[in-house]
Structures are given as structure tokens and as C-alpha cells.
């Protein structure tokens, strides 16, 4: 069976709107060069899951510097002000919440959106999830990744060919 996910264009539009609305339009999101990964530094990961007519998980992975800058801008603080880990986790969680909610609307509904889960480091994806869309981007010189994973919630049917009336 083919797992359904949002198109690259739609996912990019969603992420771009979230980024430009809350982190400012002056630094655009750009496609990452093919060979750039997320780097070796500290990474923040956030995930939110969608359950219902479509089942999947939306994840955002960003390096510490992006997480810090995002938090400063969302909280209206000057660059370099002290941020608690809770503040950063909260801001990163809100980013994945907004992206996840809009991804949910791209897929068949109705479905429910979970509260975000945020971790420093990476979140391992359960084995029943398959990546269906992935955006590798750079923002203000730093990499970030947004992925959509779909859940194989229905065991593959022996015959899932034709539907007769």
C-alpha cells in the first residue's frame, strides 16, 4: 500500500508561513544543499502526532542556535538573554504544533492533533512509521529538518486491488 503524505510544495508553504510569521520575514527559509546534514551540535527535536482519518507524526529538528533564536523572537527578548530549558522546549513545541496542525489539514480528516513532545537530542521514530515527506532547509545559516511520517495502521490486505460497487 502507498502511504499518503503532504506534497513537498504544501509542506514547504506551511513551514514557510510559520517561520515568516513568528521568526520574521527578513531571513528566508532556503533549501539546504544536498550534502548538509544537521551538524554535530546540540539538536532539539519536537514531534506531534495526528490520529484519525490519517495517522502519522510530524517532527521538527533544529540545532540549538535556531531553537534559542526562535525562543527569543517568540518571547520578544533581546538576543543573548538567559533562556530556561523550559522556555526553549515550549517555543519549539509551539513550532511543531503549528506545523502539525496545518499538516493535519492537508490530509484527509477528521483527525485529532496530540500535544507536542519536545526533547533535547533526537526522538527515535517507532518502527511502524515511514517517512513520507521531508524538508531539509537552512535558516539564517543554520540547518533544520521537518519530516512527516505516516503510520501503517492497517495491516496490508492480501488483495487491495479493485473496489467494486
Amino acid at each position: 500500500m502507498i502511504l499518503e503524505g503532504p506534497t513537498y510544495t504544501d509542506l514547504h508553504a506551511v513551514v514557510d508561513e510559520v517561520w515568516s510569521a513568528f521568526l520574521g520575514p527578513e531571513d528566508p527559509l532556503l533549501p539546504a544543499l544536498p550534502d548538509t546534514g544537521l551538524g554535530d551540535g546540540v539538536t532539539w527535536s519536537a514531534a506531534t502526532s495526528v490520529t484519525g482519518a490519517w495517522n502519522g507524526v510530524v517532527t521538527v529538528e533544529i540545532p540549538d542556535v535556531v531553537a534559542q533564536t526562535a525562543t527569543e523572537r517568540m518571547l520578544g527578548l533581546a538576543p543573548g538573554e538567559d533562556l530556561s530549558t523550559e522556555d526553549v522546549a515550549d517555543a519549539v513545541g509551539e513550532l511543531v504544533n503549528m506545523i502539525g496542525g496545518n499538516v493535519k489539514s492537508l490530509m484527509p480528516g477528521p483527525s485529532a492533533l496530540s500535544l507536542p513532545l519536545v526533547a533535547r537530542g533526537t526522538i527515535a521514530s517507532p518502527s511502524d512509521l515511514t517517512e513520507v515527506s521531508c524538508l531539509d532547509l537552512t535558516w539564517a545559516g543554520s540547518p533544520l529538518r521537518v519530516s512527516v511520517l505516516a503510520r501503517r495502521d492497517v495491516p496490508a490486505r492480501a488483495t487491495d486491488k479493485q473496489e467494486s460497487a
Binding site: 513568528f22 517568540m74 518571547l75 520578544g76 523550559e86 509551539e94
Partner: peptide, 9 residues
């Protein structure tokens, strides 16, 4: 809102 960042905005 459960997000402090969003409440702040």
C-alpha cells in the same frame, strides 16, 4: 494557550 511563547506573542 498552553504555550508560554504563544501567550507572550
Amino acid at each position: 494557550d498552553d504555550s508560554r511563547a504563544m501567550r507572550s506573542i
